[in-house]
Amino acid sequence: MYDDVETEAGVQTTRDEPGKTPWAIKGELILNCNCTVFCPCVVSLGKHAPTEGYCQAWAGVRIDEGFYGDADISGLNVGLLLEIPGLMARGNWKAAAFIDERADDGAYDGLVNIFSGAARGTTGLFSLLVSEFLGAERAPVIFETEGKARRLMVGKKIQGEVVPVGGSDPDSDIVVTNTQYWMGPDITVATATKGRVRAFGRVWDFDGRSAEICQIDWVGPQGR
């Protein structure tokens, strides 16, 4: 587990100071987008256009260990909706977050700050690239793993399942390693066996499209 985090004055930072509050998350992220083949953003760092010229995606985060100030966020899940009109690096994104309904008020506020970019740190790029944060809401966010399959269920709003793409060795995943991708350096190449979004006026179906699996280790200011 993470150690308690204190400010220079020796007083633990609270959740009331977004952008200054220490935070950290370890866990796993899955993502499914509308790219017809493996997402080119992973290796181009957003400088190559998505295969359809624009990006629509849902993502799920399983938090194995984490905190935001004095709020414990371990064991919670988050669902995300992302819409990017062109090159990822050029910004003008739209985003929304679904926060695990099990989160207490402190954890909820912290997760909204993290995934809106207000908390800075690893996800701080959201504050630079997202031009419209569509909102955040509490929801039953379920992240399941069965064998190699990962599933994200956010009520009827997101229903998704991703599985690693098969390689010559069936026991080993195809992994793009040592990248500079913001989510994490090692990305497992996957595909969606189900990718349905019915939220914020979006109706998307991405079955069979590109997907990713990534172990995450994110931090905010003084997050270690």
Rank of each mutant, 00 (worst) to 15 (best):
Y2L: 03
D3N: 05
E6Q: 08
T7L: 14
V11P: 03
V11E: 13
Q12H: 10
R15G: 01
D16W: 06
D16K: 05
D16A: 11
I25G: 10
G27S: 07
E28W: 01
I30M: 10
I30R: 06
C33W: 05
V37S: 03
F38Q: 06
L45W: 03
G46T: 00
P50N: 07
G53C: 09
Q56A: 02
W58R: 01
W58N: 03
R62N: 13
F67C: 07
F67T: 09
G69K: 05
D70Q: 14
D72P: 07
D72V: 09
G75V: 11
L76M: 07
N77A: 10
N77E: 05
N77R: 02
N77F: 02
V78K: 01
V78F: 06
L80W: 03
L81V: 06
L82N: 02
P85E: 04
P85Q: 01
M88E: 08
G91K: 03
A95R: 08
A95Q: 05
F98D: 00
E101S: 14
E101C: 11
R102D: 12
G106A: 15
G106I: 01
L111H: 11
V112T: 06
V112S: 05
I114H: 00
S116H: 07
G117Q: 06
A118I: 04
A119Q: 12
G121M: 07
T123L: 13
G124R: 08
L125V: 12
F126W: 05
S127A: 15
S131P: 00
F133H: 04
F133W: 02
F133S: 03
L134K: 09
G135V: 08
E137K: 12
E137N: 08
G147K: 14
L152I: 15
L152G: 10
M153D: 13
M153L: 13
V154K: 08
I158L: 12
Q159E: 13
G160R: 06
V162A: 10
V162I: 15
V163N: 13
V163A: 14
V165C: 07
V165A: 03
S172W: 14
D173G: 12
I174P: 12
I174S: 12
V175E: 11
V176M: 15
V176R: 14
N178G: 13
T179G: 12
Y181W: 15
P185H: 08
D186I: 08
I187L: 09
T191R: 11
T191F: 09
T193P: 04
K194A: 04
G195W: 00
A199D: 02
A199G: 09
F200W: 14
R202T: 02
D205P: 03
I213A: 06
C214G: 02
G220I: 06
Q222F: 15
Q222G: 15
G223P: 13
G223A: 13
